[in-house]
Design a protein around this nucleic acid. Structure first.
Length: 900
RNA sequence: GCUCGCUUAACUCAGUGGUAGAGUGUCCGCUUCACACGCGGGAAGUCGUAGGUUCAAAUCCUACAGCGAGCACCA
C-alpha cells in the first residue's frame, strides 16, 4: 500500500478546498430539496485591513462546524462571507503608506485619496479572505460582500434617509468625543477608560472684592482648562460656601470674573467641595453649563492646541504644555494650594490611544430610544436573541440598552459612506437617496454634500439584511433572513450585536437572528490577552503549518465559549489524534480488497460478533450525543465524545479485535465481511468528524472503497445529483435499531477480564511475548457463556494460549488472581513467578479498598433517612453496588486463603 | 462602587445533588503484523476558605479570599 505511515496535513489541505468551492458545495443551491429547512449565518465581517488571528479562527471554526453539520443534515445552508471597510483604521493605514512617499491625504485631495484606498483594498483586501480558505471555511464566496460595495452603500443611504424622515436622525450641537490624532469624532463605544496615575491640582481662586484674602479652592486633573472656566459650582447645602453663592471670583490669568453657583451635582464630601466649571471642555461641566446658561469659552482647538481665547500667553501651546504653564503661573502667584498624586480614569481613543478631548461640535446623531424599546420588548416578550452563554450576556445586553444614549454617527473621515445630506447656499439641508433627489427637493443645483462619512458600525448594523439584497425584496432576503445564529466575540455585543437587532427590527420587523453565541477569548499561555503591542500573538497560519488545520480546529472547537490559554501541547495532542485517524484508516485500507462501505448492520444482525454489535452501539450513541451537543452549542462535548469513541472504542478495542478476522486468508468471505464492517464503521465515524476536521475526513473518505461510486454513495438525498464528497453526505443520527444494550454490557465484561489480566501482566513484569493460561470462575451461566463465546478475542488481547471457564475458580496455588464484576474470578497460573507474600499484600490492598466502599455503602443503606427519602432508583442502585462489592470481597478472601 | 465569571491531579481544563474525569506531564514495561504523533499498566486531587440547606454537597445557598471581565465613575 502506498499510504504513508504519518498523516501529512499539508498534503490534504491542498487538495480539497478548491474542488469544494469549484463544485459549488458551499452554495445553498447545492441542496435540491425544495422543502429543505434553511440554515443561515452571516459572518462577522473582519476588518479588510486585518490579518487572520486566533479570534477569527475560533469564530470561523465554530461557524463552519455549525454550517457543515446543518448542510449534511439536509438544511439549505448559507454561510455568507464578507469584510468591513473599517473607516478609521483603513484610512490611517493608507495615510501611513502615503507618508512613506512624503505625501499627505490633503496633497491628494479627497477623490484621489479614496481611489488610493480602493486600490489598496484591491491589492491587499483579499488577504484575510484567502486565509479563510485555508481554514476550510465553507462560505459561499459567490455571495461575498463588502460594506462599501454598491449594494450595501445603497442600503446605508436608504436607512439613513428613512431614519431621517422618521425623525430619528438629526444634526445638532452637542458635546462629543474628539480624537485629536485621527481628527474625527467618536461614539461613546469607541472610547475606552483607563486608570492612570496623574496629579490632582488644587487651585486657589480669589473671591472678588476680598483683596486676595478669601479664596475658594478647586481641585482638577486638567489645570489648563481653568482658562475656559465660566463658573465655580458648590453644593447649596454646603455651609462652608453658602454665603459665597451669587458672588464671583477673579479667575487668575484671565482677568475674568466668574460666578459662584449652586448645583446638586457637586458632592460636598469630595475634594474641596467646590468645582471649577468649564462648559466647553468637560461633559459634566457642559451639563451644568446648560442648566445655568453659562457661556462657553473654547480654549482648545481640534488639535488640542490652545486658542486665542486662552490668552496671549498660552495660544498655540499643546494641552500638556499649557498644563505645566498654568501650574507654574499659579505657583508664582501663590495660588497653587497643592499638587498631589492621584489615580483617575482617563478616556482614550480606542484607535489612536490618545486622550479624548471633549468638544462641542455640530454632528449627526441618531436617536435610539424607539429602536431601543423594540429591542428590549423582543427580549422581554420572546427572550430573543437567546445568548449562549446566557450569563452574563443576556443581562448586560439588556442593561446596556436601558442606558443607551443617542449615537454620534458622523465621522470626519474620507473613507466611508458619505452622508447623503446636501447643503444649499442658504444653509438649508436636504437629505436624499441621491444628488438628483436632493436637487429636486432643493430646487437648485447649488448644493454641497456633507463631507463627513458615517460610522463604520452604521453599515455593520445592517449587515444581516443588507448582504441579502435589502432594500430590495429579494429571494435571498426572504429565504435566509432572519439568520439562524450569530457567532461573535464578546467585545462587540454592544457595538454590533445590539445595533443589528435594533435596525433589523426597525426595517424588517424581525430580529436578525434568534441565537447569539459569544465565543471565549484565546489567551497566551500566561493567560494574557494577545495583542500586537505585547507581541504575544500566535499566528494561526503558523499553527496550521506546524500542526494542521484540523488539529487547530479541534482546539478551538474545544474552547468554544470558554477563555482558553493557547498551548502547543494541546494542538499537538490533536495532531496526534489526526494521525491516529489516519492510521486507523490505513489499517482498514491495507486490507480492503474486495470489501466495501455501507455494510447493513441491521440486515446482518445475526452474523455479527460481539465487538461489532458493541462498536455499532457506541457509534450510534456517539452520533446521538454529537447531534445533541451541537444543538446546544456545546462544541466541547461533541469533540470529547468523538475523540474517545474513535481512539478508545474504535481503535483500542474494535480494530484490535477485528484483526483476527482481518488476518484470515485473503479471499475468505469472513475476511471481506470483517473488513467491510470496519470500513463501514470508519466511514460513518468520518462523517461524524467531518464538521470538525474537514480535510482529513474528506481525504480519507475519498479513499474508502465505494464512496466515489455514483450508485453507492451515501450522499444526503438533498444532494443526490452532486459529485461525491463527504461534505454532502448525510450526517449520522442515532439509529435505535443499532443500539444494543446487551452488547454493551457483555462487551464490558470482556473488557474487564482482559484488563485484569493485563494488569496482572504489568504488575508481575511478565513479558508481552509470554503466552499465559487464563482461568475464569463464574457462578453466572450467562457470564460463562459470554466469556466462552468470546474466547478468541480474550485470548488475543490478553495474550493467552488457553482460557478455562468453570463455575468455580480452579487454579493452582501459584496463580495471580483478581475479581471481576458479577461474581466472576480470574486466575493466571504463574509457577515460579509468584511471590506469595507480595500477592497476598496485593489482594489485601484491593480488599481494603473495596471494604471501605462497602462499609460506606452499607452505612448509607442502614440509615433510615436514606432508605426513607432517597428515590427508590438510587436505593436500588446502591444496593446492587454494595452487593457486587461484597461479592468481590468474598472472592478476594477465598483467593487469599488459596495462597495458603 | 455595581454586575458577572472563574478557583477540581504537577500543568491546561471537562464534569455532576448519590463514593472524582480527560489531555499533557510523570513512573513501570513494550521493535504486539495501522500508528513511538504509538501500545499496555500505574501513581497522583481535604474539587479556594468558612458556614448553611439536604438522608446525601465538589455540585444548591450565604459570607469571605484570590484571579479575571464588563459597566459606571466625583472635580
Amino acid at each position: 500500500m502506498e499510504i504513508p505511515k504519518q498523516y501529512d496535513s499539508r498534503q490534504s489541505e491542498q487538495d480539497h478546498y478548491a474542488r469544494w468551492e469549484a463544485e459549488g458545495c458551499f452554495k445553498p443551491e447545492a441542496n435540491r430539496d425544495p422543502e429543505a429547512p434553511v440554515f443561515s449565518i452571516a459572518i462577522p465581517p473582519p476588518n479588510v485591513t486585518g490579518n487572520l488571528h486566533l479570534g477569527h479562527a475560533l469564530q470561523h471554526t465554530l461557524m463552519d462546524i455549525l454550517a457543515r453539520h446543518k448542510r449534511m443534515s439536509g438544511y439549505k445552508t448559507l454561510w455568507l462571507p464578507g469584510t468591513d471597510h473599517a473607516g478609521i483604521s483603513t484610512q490611517l493605514m493608507v495615510t501611513r503608506q502615503l507618508k512613506g512617499e512624503g505625501l499627505t491625504p490633503q496633497d491628494l485631495g479627497r477623490e484621489k485619496f479614496i481611489e488610493r484606498v480602493w486600490q489598496w483594498k484591491r491589492e491587499y483586501g483579499g488577504v484575510i479572505t484567502n486565509q479563510m480558505r485555508r481554514e476550510g471555511a465553507s462560505v459561499d464566496w459567490s455571495r461575498e460582500r463588502f460594506t462599501m460595495d454598491a449594494g450595501l452603500s445603497r442600503a446605508v443611504r436608504e436607512v439613513f434617509v428613512r431614519l431621517y424622515e422618521a425623525g430619528f436622525i438629526y444634526r445638532g450641537d452637542r458635546m462629543v468625543n474628539w480624537d485629536t490624532v485621527a481628527q474625527t469624532v467618536l461614539s461613546d463605544l469607541e472610547v475606552e477608560k483607563k486608570t492612570q496615575k496623574g496629579k490632582l491640582t488644587y487651585l486657589r481662586y480669589p473671591v472678588t472684592g476680598s483683596d486676595g484674602q478669601e479664596f475658594i479652592v478647586v481641585a482638577t486633573t486638567r489645570p489648563e482648562t481653568m482658562l475656559g472656566d465660566t463658573a465655580v459650582a458648590v453644593n447649596a447645602d454646603d455651609e462652608r460656601y453658602k454665603n459665597l453663592i451669587g458672588k464671583t471670583i477673579d479667575l487668575p490669568l484671565t482677568g475674568r470674573q466668574v460666578p459662584i453657583i449652586a448645583d446638586e451635582y457637586v458632592d460636598p464630601t469630595f475634594g474641596t467641595g467646590a468645582v471649577k466649571i468649564t462648559p466647553a471642555h468637560d461633559p459634566n461641566d457642559y451639563e451644568i453649563g446648560e442648566r445655568h446658561n453659562l457661556p462657553h469659552i473654547v480654549i482648545m482647538d481640534k488639535h488640542a492646541h490652545m486658542t486665542e481665547a486662552a490668552g496671549a500667553d498660552f495660544v498655540g501651546l499643546d494641552r500638556f504644555e499649557a498644563r505645566e504653564k498654568v501650574i507654574t503661573r499659579f505657583d508664582e502667584l501663590g495660588l497653587l494650594e497643592k499638587n498631589e498624586d492621584y489615580e483617575f480614569a482617563i478616556s482614550l481613543s480606542e484607535r489612536s490611544k490618545v486622550p479624548i478631548e471633549p468638544l462641542v461640535m455640530t454632528q449627526w446623531f441618531c436617536r435610539m430610544d424607539a429602536m431601543r424599546d423594540k429591542a428590549l420588548n423582543l427580549m422581554r416578550d420572546e427572550g430573543l436573541p437567546r445568548f449562549t452563554p446566557e450569563n452574563p450576556y443576556g443581562k448586560v445586553y439588556t442593561e446596556w440598552l436601558e442606558n443607551l444614549r443617542d449615537w454620534t454617527i458622523s465621522r470626519q473621515l474620507w473613507w466611508g459612506h458619505q452622508i447623503p445630506a446636501w447643503f444649499a447656499e442658504d444653509g438649508r439641508v436636504f437629505v436624499a437617496r441621491t444628488y438628483e433627489e436632493a436637487q429636486a427637493q432643493a430646487g437648485t443645483d447649488k448644493l454641497t454634500q456633507d463631507p463627513d462619512v458615517l460610522d463604520t458600525w452604521f453599515s455593520s448594523a445592517l449587515w444581516s439584511f443588507s448582504t441579502l439584497g435589502f432594500p430590495d425584496d429579494t429571494e435571498d432576503l426572504r429565504t435566509f433572513h432572519p439568520t439562524s445564529v450569530l457567532v461573535t466575540a464578546r467585545d462587540i455585543v454592544f457595538l454590533w450585536v445590539s445595533r443589528m437587532v435594533m435596525t433589523s427590527l426597525e426595517f424588517l420587523d424581525e430580529p436578525p437572528f434568534r441565537d447569539v453565541f459569544i465565543t471565549g477569548t484565546v489567551l497566551d499561555k500566561n493567560g494574557q490577552r494577545m495583542s500586537k503591542t505585547k507581541g504575544n500573538g500566535v499566528d494561526p497560519l503558523d499553527v496550521f503549518d506546524k500542526y494542521g488545520v484540523d488539529a487547530t480546529r479541534l482546539v478551538l472547537a474545544n474552547a468554544g465559549a470558554t477563555d482558553t490559554r493557547w498551548s502547543d501541547t494541546q494542538v499537538e495532542s490533536y495532531r496526534n489524534f489526526a494521525n491516529k485517524i489516519w492510521n486507523a484508516a490505513r489499517f482498514c485500507l491495507m486490507n480492503s480488497e474486495g470489501a466495501t462501505i455501507g455494510y447493513d448492520f441491521v440486515r446482518h444482525k445475526n452474523e455479527l460478533t460481539l465487538h461489532d454489535r458493541w462498536c455499532v452501539t457506541r457509534l450510534n450513541k456517539v452520533a446521538g450525543q454529537v447531534n445533541d451537543s451541537l444543538s446546544r452549542y456545546q462544541f466541547h462535548e461533541a469533540v470529547y465524545a468523538l475523540y474517545h469513541f474513535f481512539w478508545d472504542d474504535f481503535c483500542d478495542w474494535y480494530i484490535e479485535l477485528s484483526k483476527r478476522d482481518v488476518s484470515a486468508p485473503e479471499d475468505s468471505p469472513a475476511r471481506r465481511e470483517a473488513v467491510s464492517r470496519a470500513l463501514s464503521i470508519l466511514e460513518v465515524a468520518l462523517r461524524l468528524l467531518h464538521p470538525f476536521m474537514p480535510y482529513i475526513t474528506e481525504d480519507l473518505w475519498r479513499r474508502l472503497p465505494g464512496t466515489l461510486d455514483a450508485g453507492s454513495t451515501v450522499l444526503h438525498p438533498a444532494y443526490s445529483d452532486s459529485q461525491p464528497t463527504i461534505m454532502l453526505t448525510a450526517f449520522p443520527v442515532a439509529d435505535k435499531l443499532l443500539i444494543d444494550e446487551a452488547a454493551e454490557s457483555e462487551m464490558n465484561t470482556v473488557i474487564e477480564l482482559i484488563s485484569r489480566v493485563r494488569t496482572i501482566r504489568a504488575e508481575l513484569n511478565i513479558k508481552p511475548s509470554e503466552q499465559l493460561t487464563v482461568i475464569v470462575g463464574a457462578q453466572d451461566a450467562n457470564l460463562r457463556q459470554v466469556i466462552s463465546t468470546n474466547e478468541a478475542s480474550i485470548k488475543r488481547l490478553a495474550r493467552a494460549s488457553e482460557l478455562k471457564v468453570d463455575e468455580r475458580l480452579d487454579a493452582p496455588r501459584a496463580s495471580a488472581r483478581a475479581v471481576l464484576g458479577g461474581g466472576a474470578e480470574v486466575a493466571v497460573p504463574l509457577e515460579g513467578l509468584i511471590d506469595f507474600e507480595k500477592e497476598r499484600a496485593r489482594l489485601s490492598r484491593e480488599m481494603e479498598k473495596l471494604s471501605g466502599e462497602a462499609e460506606r455503602g452499607k452505612a448509607q443503606l442502614t440509615n433510615p433517612n436514606f432508605a426513607g427519602r432517597a428515590p427508590q432508583e438510587k436505593v436500588d442502585e446502591l444496593k446492587a453496588k454494595v452487593a457486587d462489592t461484597e461479592q468481590r470481597i468474598a472472592g478476594l478472601k477465598i483467593m487469599v486463603e488459596a495462597l495458603g
